[in-house]
Design a binder for these strands. Sequence first.
DNA 1: ATTATATATTCCTTGACAGGAATATTCCTT
DNA 2: AAGGAATATTCCTGTCAAGGAATATATAAT
Lengths: 124, 124
Amino acid sequence: MGYIRGMDPATLAALAEPNRLKIVEFLRDKPRPVGEIAARLRIRQPQVSKHLRVLAEAGIVDMRPAAQQRLYYLQPKPFQELDRWLDTFRPTWEARLDTLEAFLQEMQGKAKKPGSPEVRRSKT
Amino acid sequence: MGYIRGMDPATLAALAEPNRLKIVEFLRDKPRPVGEIAARLRIRQPQVSKHLRVLAEAGIVDMRPAAQQRLYYLQPKPFQELDRWLDTFRPTWEARLDTLEAFLQEMQGKAKKPGSPEVRRSKT
DNA sequence: ATTATATATTCCTTGACAGGAATATTCCTT
DNA sequence: AAGGAATATTCCTGTCAAGGAATATATAAT
């Protein structure tokens, strides 16, 4: 653990596995016991338990025992973290084209070769 | 390709690799040539090219040639997609505790669990 | 206590992937 | 045309993660 600042790759890695992503989406509505997840997603129970462990270690889910069952549910924190991370890209989305043009200009001047090549600009 | 609806795991997989995540963050501000990325992140050039290929195949970056250089820049679409996906969880974040409690109630209907915390419903 | 139900863990095998090193390719310069 | 600079690709190797199968653990019911 760590990642005081920035996005934790572990969160993304946990979500990147297709079956785990489906599990997360299945948990979106309400907590679910392991067996129900396995039945719904047609994954064998041991694999579901393993995936849930990975998700839990990433802080994406937590669990509450209920009799022999274990009710798994989502934790908001990783999603909020991901959301905040995405926020840092919004400025880029909008200014992207401008930045590209500006940067191309800048590059051509800054390129350490004298006699800079001609700038190719796409027509609009 | 595919994934008409829902989140594409490939996007997450591409972002999950630590070096690739750093590359993406480095590209946040403006387009960069491969060599600059390699120098800044202290990764060997071939590995950077490979990572960029993965990112490109995931639609996260695109490229524009400038002389012998290749300027890589971010593509907004995957981020927007990720953002929309996150939106589908927002309702859950807020109602999470309620849902949990409600579900536990329902569960307890057939299985009593001792030590269960008192139910506090913020629902008026 | 024994049995049943629900879940977790272990062992094994296989495939994917990341890094290193060397080489190929592309484009510019002279 | 030849050489140089920037980037891409290939081959190799080690590591790690995911699924299958079997088994262990926890809790409940009888």
